[in-house]
Design a binder for these strands. Sequence first.
DNA 1: ATATTACCTATGGATTTACTAGGTAAATAC
DNA 2: GTATTTACCTAGTAAATCCATAGGTAATAT
Lengths: 139, 139
Amino acid sequence: MIVSTKGRYALRVMVSFAQRGREEYIPLKEIAEAEGISQKYLESIMTTLSKAGFVDAVHGKGGGYRLNRSPEEYTVGSILKLTEGGLTAVSCTAQGAAACSRTECCQAKPMWDRLDKMIDDFFEGITIADLLKDNGVQK
Amino acid sequence: MIVSTKGRYALRVMVSFAQRGREEYIPLKEIAEAEGISQKYLESIMTTLSKAGFVDAVHGKGGGYRLNRSPEEYTVGSILKLTEGGLTAVSCTAQGAAACSRTECCQAKPMWDRLDKMIDDFFEGITIADLLKDNGVQK
DNA sequence: ATATTACCTATGGATTTACTAGGTAAATAC
DNA sequence: GTATTTACCTAGTAAATCCATAGGTAATAT
């Protein structure tokens, strides 16, 4: 499993916000209920997105969240990398991970590197706007 | 993480057996020591490979394991699918998993399907022989 | 018989996942 | 300025998964 609920929820919520437009702030409660996702759980995800500047947040009545860019400007990759904390397919290549002692002689390393790049290119090539088009396919 | 140690060990061991040729049976102990992997842990992986007919196994002295095909005939995908029990990148698309209640309306589903296919094609396009060539790259 | 090997079953610590619980801080409405 | 609404913060937790370990049994060779 390369993408957990955290990343999948983040995508769904971003799509949801995109559908609601950027005019007004929408309280998370509404989105959580509409999507059928635990509000408390979503809160932690939204805070991550907010801190990273992916959305604007306003406290109090009339507040909530809203996108601060157009849907085309959010790549799926950027959202997943943020919420999942990376997208590496194999621990060998994960940054921060204790470097594998066999890095030098590992015959599979180039394969893992190629895989990582392929997955990264894939997700960076899809935007929230693409998902809104209801097919997730681009080009 | 899409490939755990189980799958990575399986690949390393298969490469290791490929390097040793198909003339004689090699006891797992030798491979485990050479690779610096827990023998007991490897045993369970080898049994999986043996039961699936990927290797021949012989008990007793002079016994051990050996490949029963040439390295070109083992795709990385077949080994990973066997030892990892599948390669799906997202639980949504995992077979046997409780079908997501949003399958019908999920805007990301086509994306996950495309990703799965891309990863499958990637791993099916690489063989143990390719890994032996020390680059993992094909074509 | 004994040694060597594969194979089987069970267990366990560590980590991750997907939440829940219960608060505090900021903004608005009265 | 009090109450309400919202975002944000910290902690805990049940379940699952990962990465083994422990201790056996079954088969084959000398």
